[in-house]
């Protein structure tokens, strides 16, 4: 299916219009910069950890609708989860973006399933995965810039 409305679902357009958790986080423990060299998009991810949990998470930057919505959806979803849960979620989302996953898996991901439309748009997968790569880097290492390349 290649209908544009499958890529730009209502959830995506909504999160692009009004990104959740947008802005800096003054007392962040981890600050990660993500760059998509293809389009020059940049996002900065701020995470505050508390006892193995993502206590707070915010992001700033510019990007296309897919990357802004993906960042917004990601922050909304991982806030309050444990680091392990977040990393497991990264794997699930990554699979959804790059491989054919079945209905069940998508349903499990709830709102995040809205991102699955990018599978049909190979040039846009990096837009959707940027925030998630930044998340993984933030949770597994110290500060450094990451790139989707």
């Amino acid at each position: 299916m290649s209908d544009l409305t499958d890529l730009y679902r209502e959830v995506i357009l909504d999160h692009n219009r009004q990104p959740r958790n947008f802005g800096e986080l003054d007392d962040a423990d981890r600050v990660i910069e993500g760059v998509n060299p293809l389009c020059g998009d940049r996002m900065t991810l701020y995470i505050k950890l508390d006892d193995g949990r993502v206590d707070d998470v915010r992001f700033t930057g510019t990007g296309c609708a897919i990357s802004v919505a993906s960042s917004s959806l990601m922050t909304e979803r991982v806030k309050g989860t444990t680091v392990d849960e977040s990393l497991a979620l990264f794997k699930q989302v990554h699979r959804m973006l790059t491989e054919q996953t079945d209905e069940n898996e998508c349903t499990e991901l709830g709102k995040l399933a809205a991102l699955s439309g990018v599978r049909e748009y190979p040039s846009r997968i990096k837009c959707a995965s940027l925030a998630w790569h930044a998340l993984r880097t933030a949770l597994t290492s110290d500060d450094e810039a990451i790139s989707t390349e």
Partner: peptide, 26 residues
């Protein structure tokens, strides 16, 4: 407020090829 990358994808679905991005001129 539509990002160039989104315009590129939308136009492509209409069979229209344009370039989007920084055009090697950051």
């Amino acid at each position: 407020k539509i990002h160039a990358h989104d315009l590129g994808t939308i136009l492509d679905r209409d069979g229209i090829a344009v370039r989007t991005g920084h055009h090697c001129a950051m």
